[in-house]
């Protein structure tokens, strides 16, 4: 994993601090829920005991992480080029948007349509391929997966409410 560790180390102290703050907050929330569930019932552990132990441990280690992150050197000078960073963030966000859209579109649009739309979106708008290449790859992916999953392996993938109501 050495080559992936590289971008990780360029992330600034601010992100480390933020990450551990999130874990600490989540830990305190979980402790609250666990206490509400109850730690003990007659003769046996209650619903909250295990969540409580795990949450307390998590909070403790998160606070420890927060302390060490706080002590990290500030490295504003070494920060990456802002333009590059924005580009990267936009691409990652586009992928996440594509994934979420894909998941939500599966039932209404059906497997084939939502696959084509998602792949077109990713390749055209995140990766900036030309339209012909994009369309060829999108249709190819959808067709290939339809053959592999549905026809060959008998998986049941959604047909799409939209098509159902239009066709029948």
């Amino acid at each position: 994993m050495s080559d992936e560790a590289a971008p990780a180390s360029t992330v600034s102290r601010r992100w480390h601090v933020l990450g551990f703050v999130v874990f600490t907050a989540a830990g305190f929330y979980a402790i609250g829920v666990a206490l509400q569930l109850g730690l003990w019932r007659q003769n046996s552990p209650g619903e909250g005991l295990f969540p409580f132990i795990a949450a307390v441990a998590m909070t403790a280690f998160a606070v420890a992480g927060l302390v060490s992150a706080w002590r990290m050197p500030r490295r504003s000078a070494a920060a990456a080029n802002r333009g590059d960073l924005a580009q990267t963030l936009i691409r990652v966000a586009a992928y996440i948007f594509g994934l979420v859209f894909y998941a939500l579109a599966l039932n209404p649009l059906g497997f084939i349509t939502s696959t084509i739309v998602t792949v077109v979106f990713i390749l055209r708008f995140a990766e900036r391929y030309s339209w012909p290449v994009t369309l060829a790859l999108a249709v190819g992916t959808a067709a290939g997966c339809q053959i592999l999953f549905v026809i060959w392996l008998g998986a049941i993938l959604p047909f799409g409410y939209l098509w159902e109501s239009l066709l029948y």
Partner: peptide, 13 residues
């Protein structure tokens, strides 16, 4: 460019 769409479809399906 081919692998990324495939990973998306495989994970989601």
């Amino acid at each position: 460019s081919i692998l990324a769409p495939l990973i998306i479809v495989f994970c989601v399906v």
